[in-house]
Simulated scan of single mutants.
Amino acid sequence: MLDHAAIAARIPHQGNMCLLDAVVDWSEAAITCRAVSHADPANPLRAAGRLGAANGIEYAAQAMAVHGALLASAGDRPRQGYLTSVRSVQLHVARLDDLAGELAVHAERLSGDANHILYQFSLSHAGRCLLEGRAAVVLDADALKETRS
């Protein structure tokens, strides 16, 4: 299990923008993380004093980033990933900040190659699905642009 500091060491999100508190489980195909930052009044994603459910996509994106970092070979330079699209997103609640306790953040790699990955993701609280969807990630987008020039 990785704690908040170990997660922050692997992704570009730092300070209170690193939203995940722990990696609970991971494999080559999937990752499950724990988060409690949704209840923090200082959460940087809050607007008008609340944290809307769509912000859960950022929690899932950070889980995907940690997953990629864990899959990287030791000594490899971390690859910058960009969330290029989200699809089939279903929000089952309006907000996240009114939920006491932990969120479970799950991401499963459905397909991919060296530069493109498709994930399925979900956030849940006490066994209840809060949101779910799919996300496409492009790795090292600048390098892809250079190869097309």
Rank of each mutant, 00 (worst) to 15 (best):
L19T: 00
S27G: 14
D25E: 15
S111V: 09
E132A: 15
A136W: 08
C18W: 02
V36F: 05
A61H: 10
G52R: 13
V137I: 15
D40P: 07
A30V: 06
L123A: 01
A74M: 06
V89Y: 01
A8K: 03
A47E: 14
H125I: 07
V66H: 00
C18S: 12
H92W: 11
A8H: 01
P44E: 04
G68I: 08
E132L: 02
P12I: 03
H116T: 14
V24H: 11
Q62T: 04
I31P: 02
L99D: 04
L20F: 02
E102Y: 06
W26G: 08
P78N: 04
Q62V: 10
G101S: 08
L130V: 12
A104Y: 02
G56R: 00
R10F: 00
H116M: 14
A72C: 02
G133T: 03
H92T: 09
W26S: 15
H4K: 12
A8N: 04
A47C: 13
R10I: 02
Y119L: 12
A35Y: 07
A53G: 03
D98L: 07
W26T: 09
V105A: 09
A114V: 12
S73T: 11
A104H: 08
D97H: 00
C33F: 06
H4T: 03
Q80E: 12
I31W: 05
A8Q: 08
A9P: 02
E102L: 05
N115C: 12
P12D: 06
E58G: 03
L118I: 08
S85H: 07
A61Y: 11
A100W: 05
R87V: 06
C33D: 08
A61F: 12
R34Y: 05
S88C: 10
A60T: 13
L103G: 07
L51V: 00
S88H: 14
P44W: 01
V105L: 09
S88K: 15
N55R: 05
I31N: 06
A94K: 13
A114K: 13
A22G: 04
N115S: 14
Q80M: 13
G56W: 01
E132F: 04
A72R: 11
H38F: 00
I11C: 00
L45A: 11
S37N: 04
V105T: 10
V23A: 02
A5R: 11
D76M: 10
V36P: 00
V86W: 04
T84K: 06
E28Y: 08
A42L: 14
H116W: 12
R10W: 01
I31M: 07
Q120F: 01
H4Q: 09
S27Q: 12
R95K: 08
L45N: 01
L19V: 06
V86Y: 05
Q120C: 08
A63S: 09
L110M: 13
S111K: 11
G127H: 06
D25S: 15
A135Y: 08
R77L: 13
L131I: 00
A114M: 13
A9S: 06
G68R: 10
Q62F: 03
V93A: 15
R34F: 04
L45G: 03
A136S: 15
P44S: 05
N115T: 14
E102S: 14
H4C: 03
